[in-house]
Structure formats: structure tokens, C-alpha cells
């Protein structure tokens, strides 16, 4: 009940900025326009005729970029790690220690509210863009694939949340984590598959990159939808994603537990 109230308040808070939200969402699709023309030029530039790149033809690639936008709508947690680190640094975090609320659950609820409002506002722009770009898709996948897709998205939300929360908790040990977070942002942009499908990497790289959890933040859900991952591979992928969710949940909990012990409440 308590956490439901937190959720409700956060939703009201978020709704105040809905116009900014909707505009921002549409704008985020602008780079896709460049991608559409870039990849067209890349396929036209093949002297031996346009052949698929790592199993992706032109339409697959554009569909892939559009789908990673969906993945990111679930897994991205803008400002989460830095706000946790800031709360630790300036002492705001002690309100969680004084009040009978659990910090991780509180932040999770406000993020959930943030996301729910975001989906409410962003579904319109997303539907519009996907409808315009429907030619890049070869129809809806079957029900099981859809189910796996949705499961991978929901878990990517949890994974993104607990992974960023873990990073933010590093603030208990180091005062300044902004450089670290910037490096994380760079690495994750590249290795999550937002820049290109991970299958494009040469030799053993795709195998290595699919072992680390970042692929679930963008690549995996998109690949599931496009049926690039099927059968036992899909089952293993989902199981591994669930494992990483639990892993980062435990790590965030553990770090909070030990972090609070060495915390000395700076600030007023």
C-alpha cells in the first residue's frame, strides 16, 4: 500500500511535464532518419551487389534500429546512477535511513512511475513512427516470439534498474563517480548493440559480447523480435537475462547494506 502511494504520487509528478516528454520522444527518432539513408548507401556501395550483412538485409537493419528504441524505452534509466551517487554525496540519502521506507524499493517505484507515464505519452509517437516504417518489417512474429519479446523487455527494465543502482552505490566508496558513469555510458552504448547489431562484429566477438549482460539493454529484445534468436538459444538467452536480473538485484542490495555502514552523512 505504501509503495502504491509512492507510485501514485510519482505518476502525478511526471504528468506535469508531458508535452516536453512527447516532443522529446519524437525527436529521439531523428537519428533513425540518418540511419535509413546511411544503410541504404552502404548496401548500394557493395560492388558485388547488395548482400546481407551478418544475416541482416537492409530492411532487417532498419527494423533492428527501430526495435532497439523499444528496448531502450524499457532498459534506459537516465540519471539513475548519478542521482543515487549525488544523494549519497550531499547527504539526502539519510532520509531513507530515518523514514520507514526501503530506499531501493522507493527509487524503483518512482522509476516505474516514470516509465509508466513515459509509455502513456510515448506510445503515440512510437506507434506513428512504426506505422510509417511498417515496410521495414515482415509482419508480426508468432505469439510465442511475442511473449518472449515482452518477457525480455520487462526483464531489461529490471536489469537496467538494478545495474544502474549498483553503479550509483559505488558512490558510498568514491566521492566522485561521474567519470566512471561516463565510461559506462560509452561502453554500454557500444556493447548493448545500440550502434549496430552485435552479430556484425568479427570472429569470436559476438560470442563474447553475448556473455555480458549489456546485450539485454538493446540487442537481445530486438533480435528476439526479428527471430534472429530462436529455439534453445532463445530459452538460454531468457534464462541468462533472468540470472543477471537476480545478480544485480543482489549486488545492489549488498552494496547498499555495506555502504550504509560506512556512510557518515555529510551535509545538512
Amino acid at each position: 500500500m505504501l509503495y502504491f502511494t509512492i507510485l501514485r504520487i510519482s505518476i502525478a509528478e511526471r504528468l506535469a511535464y508531458r508535452v516536453d516528454f512527447a516532443l522529446g520522444t519524437l525527436m529521439r527518432f531523428l537519428p533513425i532518419v540518418t540511419q535509413i539513408f546511411l544503410w541504404d548507401a552502404i548496401f548500394r556501395g557493395m560492388t558485388s551487389g547488395p548482400g546481407p550483412i551478418a544475416g541482416y538485409n537492409y530492411h532487417d537493419l532498419i527494423a533492428y534500429y527501430l526495435l532497439t528504441m523499444v528496448s531502450r524505452a524499457f532498459s534506459s534509466m537516465p540519471g539513475l546512477a548519478s542521482s543515487i551517487a549525488r544523494d549519497i554525496r550531499d547527504g539526502t540519502i539519510k532520509k531513507y535511513l530515518l523514514q520507514p521506507v526501503d530506499m531501493l524499493s522507493f527509487v524503483l517505484m518512482s522509476r516505474l512511475a516514470h516509465k509508466l507515464v513515459y509509455y502513456g505519452v510515448a506510445t503515440g509517437p512510437f506507434a506513428l513512427v512504426f506505422w510509417i516504417c511498417r515496410g521495414y518489417f515482415s509482419g508480426w512474429p508468432d505469439a510465442w516470439t511475442m511473449l518472449a519479446f515482452i518477457a525480455s523487455l520487462l526483464m531489461s527494465f529490471l536489469l537496467g534498474f538494478f545495474l544502474e543502482a549498483t553503479l550509483g552505490m559505488i558512490g558510498f566508496w568514491f566521492l566522485e563517480v561521474s567519470s566512471l558513469l561516463f565510461v559506462y555510458m560509452l561502453v554500454s552504448f557500444f556493447f548493448s548493440g545500440q550502434m549496430f547489431p552485435l552479430d556484425m562484429m568479427p570472429s569470436y566477438w559476438p560470442t563474447v559480447l553475448k556473455l555480458i549482460p549489456l546485450q539485454y539493454m538493446a540487442y537481445f529484445p530486438a533480435a528476439v523480435f526479428l527471430q534472429k534468436v530462436t529455439g534453445p538459444q532463445l530459452a538460454w538467452g531468457l534464462a541468462a537475462e533472468a540470472f543477471w536480473v537476480v545478480f544485480f538485484y543482489l549486488s545492489a542490495r549488498t552494496m547498499f547494506h555495506y555502504g550504509v555502514r560506512r556512510y557518515s552523512a555529510y551535509g545538512g
Binding site: 548507401a41 548496401f43 556501395g45
Partner: peptide, 8 residues
């Protein structure tokens, strides 16, 4: 690695 040119 996959194409020779950008643009035909």
C-alpha cells in the same frame, strides 16, 4: 568490412 563504398 562489409561494403566497399558508402553510396553507389
Amino acid at each position: 568490412h562489409y561494403t566497399d563504398f558508402i553510396g553507389a
